[in-house]
Design a protein around this nucleic acid. Structure first.
Lengths: 110, 110
DNA sequence: TGGTTATATCGTATATTTGCGATAAACTAA
DNA sequence: TTAGTTTATCGCAAATATACGATATAACCA
């Protein structure tokens, strides 16, 4: 990609929100988060049984969610138990709520 | 990309949220929405003065926001006045709030 | 040690996104 | 009609995302 010399400046909030939004920009990642949030499942294997996608693809999506900070992985050999990263979940919730409601009313509780 | 025969099924909510999230997955689009929301500017030209990016690139991002339904464009020759699509804005707000708080407390007002 | 299980990573192919300059399109004004 | 203004679209190149199968890794058990 060609790029100009001048770079656009973004606030921390804008960049953080873009990272969270990118993690949420694929429906299968939303589905995974909902499954984890509802405690229906925790292990990768359970996800691969529910979602008809290659195991490597699921693993790739889990990595994306990990890197965005939305989930945590706890190694439980030979399995890995995934769960929502509540701290960042709240952060994401606050970022989106703040964005959509700005100077207007907003609430975000656990 | 290779694809298996079986396709993953997504709910309307999951797909709608992914579309909104994708629109929000680039910091410059977040910045544009914030500028439009704060009424600081409305015309494409004003955005190109504030954001150091090629006019064609800004126009491209505006198109992405239009297609996601987050903004509306009102032709005012030879200019185009952009503004937040409040109806879909509220829809997006509800989708994200619902997602992040699920069975827990949540509020989303204009 | 070797085999099993669960998950991650690699390599690859294709699709999509992002950015730019150049150009087209739509309209106004002279 | 012609020129000017503003915005959209085209064409291209580079980067990133998405999906898969194959393979590597890590831990356990026999």
């Amino acid at each position: 990609m060609q790029r100009t010399l001048s770079t656009v400046e973004y606030s921390g909030e804008e960049e953080k929100m873009a990272v969270f939004a990118k993690a949420l920009s694929h429906p299968v990642r939303i589905k995974i988060l909902k499954l984890l949030d509802s405690q229906v499942c925790c292990f990768t294997g359970e996800l691969t049984e529910i979602i008809p996608m290659a195991q490597s693809t699921i693993s790739q999506h889990l990595k994306a969610l990990l890197e965005a900070g939305l989930i945590q992985g706890e190694i439980n050999p030979p399995k890995v138990r995934y769960c929502i990263d509540r701290e960042n979940w709240l952060k994401a919730c606050a970022v989106f709520s703040g964005f959509f409601t700005r100077d207007r009313e907003f609430r975000c509780s656990k």
